[in-house]
């Protein structure tokens, strides 16, 4: 662990230093190019706002009304029937929709069942192995002003499903006997 955390602390500053040194060596007017490139960051962030507001309000209404919990409860029996641990079902369903929701749920599962329990390890693996599909699509498409996502949402959600199934299988194989 020591090595990994050291690497993750060092990597950013080293990367920045390397780019700057290399650019200076190549006679790039570094500071001026930095300001020039950074300028559009502001307008990109602003253009994301309507997309994110639309998506986040819809997701929050869906969650706050209790509809999300209701849906999770009604799908649960089917998922437990095919071998998904019931404790993990809410996390699996919320992972692609809400990043903060999933992180809160992972933390809760780890604190309730313990980080080294089967559920704790499964939650950790799920949290780490996929990303918040809806957020990513909203931000990336929003930043360049694309309203029609095509098949992107279908592809993303199906891949999430595969990720969840694989996470369950892999964690069961690796840690299944050690509970």
């Amino acid at each position: 662990m020591g090595l990994i955390s050291t690497i993750s602390i060092w990597i950013l500053p080293c990367l920045i230093g390397f780019v700057l040194l290399y650019a200076t060596f190549k006679r790039v007017s570094t500071y001026e190019e930095f300001v020039e490139g950074g300028r559009e960051g502001f307008s990109i962030a602003i253009s994301i706002i309507p997309y994110l507001v639309g998506m986040l309000v819809a997701i929050t209404v869906f969650r706050a009304s209790g509809a999300l919990a209701f849906m999770i409860d009604s799908i649960k029996p089917f998922l437990t029937a095919i071998g998904v641990p019931p404790e993990i079902v809410p996390l699996a369903l919320i992972r692609p929709i809400s990043g903060t929701g999933a992180l809160a749920m992972t933390t809760d599962l780890i604190s309730t069942y313990g980080p080294d329990s089967f559920i704790g390890r499964l939650a950790s693996t799920m949290q780490g192995s996929t990303d918040t599909t809806l957020y990513i699509l909203t931000v990336y498409f929003g930043a360049v002003g694309i309203k029609r996502m095509g098949d992107a949402l279908k592809v993303g959600l199906l891949a999430d499903l595969v990720g969840i199934i694989v996470a369950i299988i892999v964690v069961t194989i690796v840690f299944g006997s050690s509970i």
Binding site: V19, T30, E33, F34, G37, G38, R39, I44
Partner: peptide, 11 residues
Amino acid sequence: LVFWLGLMNIA
């Protein structure tokens, strides 16, 4: 965005 786009422009 501002920081990384700035650095990216240098790169």
